[in-house]
Design a protein around this nucleic acid. Structure first.
Lengths: 199, 199
DNA sequence: GAGTAGGTATACAGATCTGTATACGCAAGG
DNA sequence: CCTTGCGTATACAGATCTGTATACCTACTC
């Protein structure tokens, strides 16, 4: 059983397992974790429950892999866009905001990590760890790019927290408040904060 | 059975019902909605399940009242503080941020409404309506106070979305990323955005 | 040609969930 | 006095949940 392998990659998955992961991702995100049973996931994936347990071992493990996969996809999106923004250091800080419009097209139910966090209170749950690592990665991203843009340590730390909050809030409030133009307005705010910090 | 009364107030509740609501609020917030059963709520409230159903009718209704109560408490906190900030129009815009430190002392698991939203996907669920109404109220609060401070309609609309996102993100990322000084840093950012919009 | 990997099909154990049924106790107010 | 409101105590119906058991099928590989 490959389920204890932490380095399990999506490419190593069998076709059936890949379908299970895709279906589970969609259901966990759209309906919530506890609201979705393994019977439903198996049925909608077109496999038997036995196959699901043979591939993933448990619902908790499938959940962890769902979060890890989403995390990897998010980081890759940001890092990829970063490499095409080699010139302007301020634009590099803002990459998580400039990718927001395309990221939000599949995120109309809020942030996967925030939503999962609501259902995973225990800090030692593998899923909870993935979630906190993701937020820490983004905070550090803002911090490091800000330092690279020429800011001091204190300014970079403050700006990182501000941008992290603004970014989280954009995804969440876009889904709940449903105000048109949220991504654009928030990106403008982020730009203003970056310009002020680097002035 | 008083359960269908929408105007049900906490003061009208029997002592037992009040205890149930307090315990349920804590458990829903800390462990999640689906993860908490009515048996647990009844047991920790020191009442029987029969009493819970006699007072609240159903778990869904208890959940709705939990959200409505939290919503009322939040609005009252903001409105109360607003009346002691009669002078400076910019300070009035920022009231939801200045009350953040005290609000966050009991909100180390993120935003109750955002967390509940993650578990209530259906738009016509009573709880879902309460959540969206709460966010819309806060957005409108920012908008109206900004207009009162002298901004035009377009500037007020943009600023309202920005402050809403920043505010949501502050509560959420404070709980997940656990960066010290989040409230202070975010309030500084909000102040800068308000000043820029009213310049 | 035998073993192995991936999968189907079905049934079931054991726990937990929401909600209800039945029967009783007690105190306050008309 | 006696009804009404609030609550206890216990049992249970019916659904759903995670996870396992048993038995069989198919294709590929060594």
């Amino acid at each position: 059983m490959p389920t204890d392998s932490t380095e399990m990659e999506a490419e190593e998955l069998t076709p059936g397992a890949q379908r299970i992961l895709e279906v589970a991702s969609e259901l966990f995100y759209r309906r919530g974790i506890h609201a979705v049973g393994v019977d439903t996931i198996a049925a909608e994936s077109g496999v038997t429950k036995r196959t699901l347990y043979n591939r993933f071992g448990s619902k908790d493990n499938l959940l962890r892999i769902y979060l890890e996969t989403k995390d990897r996809r998010w980081r890759e999106l940001v890092v990829d866009r970063l490499s095409s923004e080699k010139g302007d250091p301020r634009a590099r800080v803002l990459v998580p905001f400039t990718v927001l419009p395309e990221w939000l097209t599949e995120s109309d139910r809020g942030c996967s990590f925030v939503n999962a966090f609501a259902e995973l209170p225990e800090r030692d749950h593998p899923g909870n760890r993935v979630i906190r690592a993701e937020k820490e990665w983004l905070r550090r991203f803002f911090h490091d790019r800000t330092v690279e843009a020429g800011a001091g340590e204190r300014a970079a730390s403050t700006l990182a927290v501000q941008l992290l909050a603004l970014h989280e809030g954009a995804i969440v409030s876009n889904a709940i408040a449903e105000v048109p133009g949220t991504a654009r307005a928030v990106t403008e705010a982020a730009t203003a904060l970056v310009d002020a910090a680097l002035a």
